[in-house]
Structure formats: C-alpha cells, structure tokens
C-alpha cells in the first residue's frame, strides 16, 4: 500500500456533490453528521471545498447540466480521491434511467476524465445512514 492510500484511510474528509438527486440521499448524508449517527467520531468530516476532500460523496443521476460540473469538481480534488456513488441513482440512474436530460451514471462521467478513478457504490433508495457508513468502511478496508 502506498503511503498516499494509507494516509487517505485515516479520518477521510468528504465533499458532497448532488448531481440531480431527489434529496433523500442528500438528507441521509447530512443525517450522518447529526447526533444519532455522528460520523465525526470516526474522523469523517464534511468539508466545504473539493480541494480539501479525500472522498466525494456523489448522489443523483447526473443530469446533462450537472455532468461538466461534476467533472470539474472531481478535477479539483487532490488525487487519489475515492468517489462514492451513493444511492440507486448515482450507481445506475435508478428510476430515472430513461430521462432525456439524464447522462449518468456517476462512474461513466468520472471515468471520462479519469479512467483509473477509484469508485465505490452504495446502493439503496435511499441507502440508510448505517448502509452509507458501512459502505465507506468496507471501501476503505479494501483499498
């Protein structure tokens, strides 16, 4: 394991990107910060800029308008940066697959700018906060 990956796994800071979600995945992510789940006790922290992020928590289908913005946000992160596709929408466009304004899913859009991106998937509609925590832990433990 390179030292970069090793350092990534301790206290990951995350940046949240909504690319056309119904809000539930997003609310569940914010929920992680609140007293019941409180992920800050593991050192996981939501940060205000992609430049500070070790991981992106991406929700939503990636709409046509959001796609270039998602790529720009990813470009601004320090690499390596783990991309978490949170929810059925982010994993595979969910119920919105046939939408004319939908160009996702997340992995396809990210891979357009970085074919070697590290992408982890947390399915669910929305995934329960416990599922998101477990997804993050599992992903970090296989890195």
């Amino acid at each position: 394991m390179s030292w970069k990956i090793w350092s990534l796994k301790k206290s990951p800071w995350v940046f949240h990107v909504n690319t056309g979600a119904c809000n539930n995945c997003d609310i569940e992510i914010v929920n992680l910060l609140t007293p019941k789940f409180d992920v800050e006790r593991f050192g996981i922290k939501l940060v205000g800029s992609p430049r500070h992020a070790d991981a992106l928590l991406v929700t939503g289908v990636v709409t046509r308008q959001a796609a270039p913005r998602l790529q720009e946000v990813y470009r601004q992160t320090a690499k390596p940066c783990v991309v978490f596709a949170i929810g059925a929408c982010a994993c595979d466009k969910g119920i919105f697959t046939t939408g004319y304004h939908v160009v996702g899913p997340v992995d396809k859009i990210i891979r357009e700018v970085d074919p070697n991106a590290i992408i982890a998937y947390v399915p669910g509609c929305p995934p329960k906060p416990e599922a998101i925590i477990s997804g993050v832990v599992k992903a970090l433990s296989v890195l």
Partner: peptide
C-alpha cells in the same frame, strides 16, 4: 436545470400503478 430529470416525460412511459414510485422520487422530502 441542474436537477432537471425529465420526470414528466418518463411518466408517460410508465403504467398508472408504477407512477407513484416515480413521483415519490421527485423530491425526497
């Protein structure tokens, strides 16, 4: 536009009893 998913068009391709699942996902809350 950032969040425009084209729900109204998708709805035309679903059956009447499938649509509640779609529209409940317009806005999570």
């Amino acid at each position: 536009s950032y969040n425009h998913r084209g729900v109204e068009k998708i709805s035309e391709s679903l059956q009447f009893d499938q649509i509640p699942f779609l529209v409940s996902r317009i806005c999570g809350i």
